[in-house]
Amino acid sequence: MTVLPKDIPGDSLKVTVGTANGKPGDTVTVPVTFADVAKMKNVGTCNFYLGYDASLLEVVSVDAGPIVKNAAVNFSSSASNGTISFLFLDNTITDELITADGVFANIKFKLKSVTAKTTTPVTFKDGGAFGDGTMSKIASVTKTNGSVTIDP
């Protein structure tokens, strides 16, 4: 049996954390987006972790974005102690894959008090994996961190 590389060099799934701005007490939304989904033969499963400074940001909610089908079954998240974990699994293993680019999740943060303008990162942590529509590992994932700026 011969195994051929399935990824064209330079191609990767792009996962990007967005940015937001606000004043202390505001609730802002930071999107997590996927790009080049079709090039990577869709997404059938993924789990990953984001870190944030809990002294500056309070997670209000984490909701599935419009590219997630049947989110009540296929999407899960949790947030505590400065870490947000995400889990997606197409429970049907074929019919509810992520097949389009767009917003995977929206994180709502309540901004805490600061004395001066502060930009705090929302960054990928170690761990996690992504699988394509056949549940094979997506070897190349380009992750881009985001941030939230609090301006009193």
Rank of each mutant, 00 (worst) to 15 (best):
F88S: 03
L97W: 15
A105N: 02
T33N: 10
V32D: 02
N74V: 01
Y49T: 01
F48P: 01
T119Q: 10
G128W: 06
N47F: 01
D26E: 09
A79Y: 15
S113A: 07
A35S: 10
G18Y: 12
V114E: 05
F130W: 03
T19V: 13
Y52S: 14
I138W: 04
S76N: 10
D90F: 02
V114C: 06
E58T: 09
G10Q: 10
K125D: 02
S77I: 14
L13H: 10
T144D: 02
V122N: 07
V62M: 11
G102Y: 00
D90G: 04
G146E: 01
V62K: 10
K125W: 07
K110S: 04
G127K: 15
T29Q: 06
T29S: 11
T45E: 00
S55F: 15
D101S: 14
S12E: 13
F75C: 05
V62I: 13
I98D: 02
I8V: 12
V32Y: 06
P121N: 08
D90N: 03
L4A: 07
S77T: 12
N74C: 03
S76T: 02
Y49V: 03
A100E: 06
A54I: 13
L57I: 12
S147F: 06
A139F: 14
I150T: 14
G127Y: 00
N91I: 11
F86P: 01
I93A: 01
G22H: 13
T144I: 07
V15S: 08
A20F: 12
S136E: 00
A38T: 13
C46Y: 06
K137G: 00
F75D: 01
V60Q: 10
K137N: 02
K143S: 02
K14N: 09
S80N: 14
D53V: 12
S76P: 01
G128A: 02
M135V: 03
P152T: 15
D11C: 09
K112T: 04
K143D: 00
D7C: 09
S147E: 08
A38Y: 11
S77R: 15
V122S: 06
G128P: 01
N21G: 08
L4M: 11
K41P: 10
A71V: 12
D36Q: 11
N42R: 12
F86C: 03
F75W: 05
T134F: 06
T119D: 05
S147D: 06
N21W: 12
M135N: 01
V43S: 09
G22K: 10
V30P: 02
